[in-house]
């Protein structure tokens, strides 16, 4: 356990160092990874969303992404068909995903969401019931 904690600390230090070094394009690779392995399940690989009995909104060319807090709060809290990812994704993954969609798919918002900003809004929630 102690060993694992130590590794975690080392990893965190390395991460923060590399984040400073790569300030020009923070965590773009991480953002792409989160998007393609999680988000595109619903929002689709082209970020154009989908329509069935209900719909998943397009993230491509979406003016609602102008404020970085909006996608952050959607990911953290969820809403309607969108589950909360507060317990599933790490804060740096959430920040990376937000920064990725706000700079791809026809979106060009240069301001960056930081991991600290995500941590500040993470709720203390209990697990969902198992079934």
């Amino acid at each position: 356990m102690n060993k694992m904690k130590m590794q975690g600390v080392v990893a965190a230090v390395l991460l923060s160092t590399s984040a400073v070094a790569m300030a020009a394009e923070p965590d773009a690779a991480e953002g792409k990874k989160v998007y393609t392995t999680i988000c595109q399940g619903c929002h689709m690989p082209d970020a154009k969303g989908a329509v069935g009995a209900g719909r998943y909104p397009a993230l491509a060319n979406n003016p609602k992404l102008a404020a970085k807090q909006y996608p952050m709060m959607m990911i953290v809290n969820g809403s309607r068909a969108m589950p909360s990812f507060a317990r599933m994704l790490a804060p740096d993954e959430i920040a990376a995903a937000v920064n990725y969609v706000r700079t791809h798919f026809g979106n060009h918002y240069p301001d960056v969401l930081t991991t600290a900003e995500v941590k500040a809004v993470l709720p203390q929630k209990s697990d969902y019931e198992r079934h």
Binding site: G41, C42, A50, G52, A53, G54, Y56, A81, P83, K125, S126, D127, Y128, E129, H131
Partner: peptide, 19 residues
């Protein structure tokens, strides 16, 4: 079948938390 891509449910089943 990935249930969040099922057009008529958008997910597997209702997921309640205690709150």
């Amino acid at each position: 079948v990935g249930w969040h891509r099922v057009p008529w449910t958008l997910g597997c089943a209702g997921s309640w938390s205690e709150e």
